[in-house]
Amino acid sequence: MSAFIGATVTYQKHLKAEALSIHRNLTPLWRRRYGGHVVNGRRTEGKRLALLEAPGAAGITLRDVLSERTCPEDRMLALIPGDPRLARILAQLKPEEQAVMLALGLNGVVTWAEAAEYAGADDPPVFGERVRRKVLRLAAEQRRRDVLRRPGPPSDLRRPGQKGEQEGAST
């Protein structure tokens, strides 16, 4: 009989531990307590997680009280390209074309038509294609100018002989 009672107590402990674990898992985060300590064998009260949308005094939420983490300049700085080649191309575009090109760099905008739609064009597929062609043309012109700006080889560089001459052959 005592073996039966001992087994029952063991099963009760496991069942209680399992129920407590399930209860903890099903308790919402904002109702859980964390950071409690055990002092003199007693568990001290922990703290609760505060929701940003929890109403406070006079209907003000915690989100209203927190300071904003963005700077006023962030929106403007996001529009300044880091690559000087891109800045040169943007400088040659009209403002509505610039809006399409900058929209293409946003998350979720994949095609030129989507970028034109995001920028508010009247006919997004046609306008997006026109901006795409213009940007490709301007990029090709920038590459051509960059090649012309590159310094050539030094003038004292030996060039191979021409018309069948052997290199290093003396005359």
Rank of each mutant, 00 (worst) to 15 (best):
L52I: 04
E97I: 07
L52F: 14
L52T: 05
E96N: 15
P55W: 01
A103H: 00
L49H: 13
R31Q: 10
L51M: 13
G41Q: 03
M101Y: 14
A54H: 05
L62H: 14
A54V: 10
L104I: 06
G46I: 06
A103P: 03
T70I: 06
L93Q: 02
G36M: 12
R88W: 01
V100F: 15
P95C: 07
G105Q: 14
S21T: 06
E68K: 09
Y34K: 05
K94D: 15
N40P: 00
A87H: 14
K94V: 12
P72H: 07
H37C: 04
I89K: 02
N40W: 03
R88E: 04
R75F: 10
T27N: 01
L90C: 05
D64N: 15
Q92I: 02
R32N: 09
G36D: 12
H37S: 05
E96Q: 06
R43F: 13
L20W: 12
L52P: 15
M76W: 09
R31C: 03
Q98N: 08
E96I: 07
L49S: 11
L29V: 07
G35N: 13
Q98S: 03
Q98R: 04
A57I: 07
T44L: 13
A78R: 11
G36V: 03
K47L: 08
P55A: 11
L62T: 09
L102E: 01
G59W: 00
R85M: 09
N40Y: 13
D83V: 12
R43H: 11
M101D: 00
R85E: 02
A58H: 04
L49P: 00
P28A: 14
R32G: 04
R32L: 09
I60A: 13
G35K: 02
E73L: 14
W30I: 03
G35W: 01
E53V: 09
C71D: 13
V39T: 14
A50M: 04
W30H: 13
L52R: 11
P84L: 08
P28I: 11
